[in-house]
């Protein structure tokens, strides 16, 4: 009987593992080193005076990403000053989605004067570690006293991709405001429709 319970417990926990890949809220995130559109390599550790980071997996081509571009710029402008910069990462393979190529990223960043880092996950090793599945997909990382990065929020920017003026719940801003006030974001996990990340074939 004891064996059976143990076996069952193991079975359930392995189910849990297979169902959830990547980070959950509360996990410690690993830093990464990726090329920015300025040609330099960046790690989160290179960004000075940060309380945390708004890591957003996003890209050029996806209509949802495009719909959020101006809001991402505004979020960066507002929260960078408070120690929470946006770090955008394009996770897509440019063979599968040519509109998300390195050169196209540079063009788009120039057109929109992106004020934040726009990195390329060229080897597609970072987005799986996070568990990102779509663009845009947000991860808020909060710096701990020991310097580690705790995942504090995962999900959507807000609840209306089509119309920034019709947003009922600004999930990401609310989460950041909560963190800055020393509180736990509620909700700390949200979902949104997005473009699937284009994996190398």
């Amino acid at each position: 009987m004891k064996h059976l319970i143990l076996y069952f417990a193991f079975f359930v926990s392995s189910l849990g593992l297979s169902a959830q890949q990547g980070y959950n809220v509360g996990d410690v995130a690993e830093d990464f080193r990726l090329p920015n559109i300025d040609g330099k390599l960046y790690s989160l550790a290179d960004i000075p005076n940060a309380q945390g980071f708004i890591v957003i997996f996003t890209c050029n081509h996806c209509p949802y990403s495009i719909a959020y571009e101006d809001r991402i710029i505004a979020l960066h402008r507002k929260y960078q000053a408070k120690g929470w910069p946006v770090v955008a990462i394009n996770p897509n393979d440019s063979v599968v989605q040519p509109a998300d190529s390195w050169s196209a990223m540079k063009v788009r960043a120039r057109e929109k004067s992106f004020p934040f880092l726009y990195l390329l996950d060229e080897r597609q090793e970072v987005f799986p570690r996070f568990g990102a599945t779509r663009t845009p997909h947000v991860y808020v990382l909060q710096k701990q006293e020991n310097g580690s990065l705790k995942v504090a929020y995962i999900g959507a920017i807000d609840d209306n991709h089509k119309d920034a003026g019709a947003v009922n719940e600004a999930f990401l801003s609310n989460a950041l405001d909560a963190l800055m006030a020393g509180k736990t974001p509620e909700p700390s996990f949200t979902r949104a429709i997005g473009c699937s990340i284009k994996v190398k074939q």
Binding site: G155, D159, H161, E169, P187, R191
Partner: peptide
């Protein structure tokens, strides 16, 4: 329906 966080699950 923009309220995807509500209806996706």
């Amino acid at each position: 329906d923009p309220g995807a966080n509500r209806w996706i699950p």
